[in-house]
């Protein structure tokens, strides 16, 4: 670092804003959008949606209106000085910070890390949960034997496993993946078991009458009837697993990547703009994952669209 930059860092920036401005200096965020432009853009978009509301589904115009009002309030409250922008930054500040994070490649890295962890854990939960559910349903004896252990494991909230699992596997990806797996596994297992019970005895008898063996009954009757409940279990597991992913990334500080880690790291710097941006990113990722999953599972069960 040249002496002039060091002097600026130490004497020009620090006295005006303390730690935060040091952080700003490292970040060097360039304003993406001014407050006025932001408000104008919102008014334009909402107005446009409202103008064409006859030709679009009603959700768009109504949703645009509500979200527009929320965004305008969010921008106005800190800008007018009603709340301190250090703790409650306006969306334009969030946008600036997120733009920096995106340009430097941090945000994509965090998103990919989170998605990778989540998909491995969730895939494992489906791959183990559904067959286990089938096995347990096929043999009530097995359920009697395994149920008690599963019951106790399920009774412990997944995040409470983190410390002991960190002792076993280190404070890295395995611990986070394990916690997400535990969160998603049980809803999927329970969904499978519930669905299995709904198999129609008449259909089972029919298959038997036509000379089907136990496997035919399983494959032709019991698996198809349990599919809708498996799908429900998978969607509940998605919600809980997603929550567990964020919880694990918050609690395991040594992960160093992931959107959850990003927001908890930003807290240390009092950087509420990055925290809020991260929360919005988390929400968008959740919506996207849910959408993808719903598309993928629509073949297997009738899903509600909303």
């Amino acid at each position: 670092m040249d002496p002039e930059a060091a002097r600026r860092l130490l004497f020009d920036k620090a006295p005006t804003g303390g730690w935060t401005s040091l952080y700003e200096y490292v970040y060097d965020p360039a304003p993406v959008l001014s407050s006025e432009a932001f408000l104008l853009a919102i008014v334009a978009v909402v107005g446009l949606l409202w103008a064409v509301r006859r030709f679009t589904p009603p959700v768009l115009a109504r949703g645009g209106l509500t979200i527009g009002v929320v965004l305008v309030l969010w921008e106005a409250v800190p800008t007018l000085g009603i709340l301190n922008p250090v703790f409650f930054p306006p969306p334009t500040a969030v946008l600036d910070k997120m733009a920096v994070h995106w340009q430097r490649g941090w945000l994509p890295q965090h998103i990919l890390a989170s998605l990778g962890r989540f998909s491995i854990a969730f895939g494992l939960a489906i791959a183990i949960g559904v067959p286990t559910g089938f096995l347990i349903s096929l043999s009530s004896r097995l359920w009697g034997y395994v149920g008690s252990i599963l019951y106790f494991i399920r009774g412990i909230p997944p995040p409470a496993w983190l410390p002991i699992f960190i002792l076993w596997a280190g404070a890295g990806n395995p611990a986070a993946v394990f916690v997400v797996f535990l969160g998603a596994f049980f809803p999927i297992l329970i969904g499978t078991v519930d669905g299995f019970k709904k198999a129609d005895p008449v259909q089972i008898e029919t298959v038997r009458t036509f000379g089907g063996n136990r496997f035919d009954v399983f494959w032709e009757v019991q698996v198809p009837t349990s599919l809708p409940d498996i799908v429900i279990g998978i969607r509940i597991g998605l919600g809980i697993g997603w929550m567990m992913l964020i919880a694990a990334e918050l609690a395991v500080a040594r992960l160093g990547t992931g959107v959850g880690w990003m927001i908890t790291h930003a807290r240390i710097w009092y950087d509420s703009a990055v925290i809020m941006g991260g929360m919005v990113v988390i929400a968008i990722m959740g919506l996207a994952v849910d959408l993808v999953l719903r598309r993928a599972l629509a073949r297997w069960a009738d899903l509600p669209r909303a």
């Binding site: 703790f87 997603w242 929550m243 964020i246 919880a247 918050l250 959850g260 927001i263 908890t264 930003a266 807290r267 009092y270 509420s272 925290i275 809020m276 991260g278 929360m279 988390i282 929400a283 968008i284 959740g286 919506l287 849910d290």
Partner: peptide, 15 residues
């Protein structure tokens, strides 16, 4: 808002 899991509110609420 519901798509933001409750733990994700932790940093902001601590702040």
């Amino acid at each position: 808002v519901r798509m933001i899991p409750a733990p994700a509110w932790a940093p902001l609420s601590i702040l």
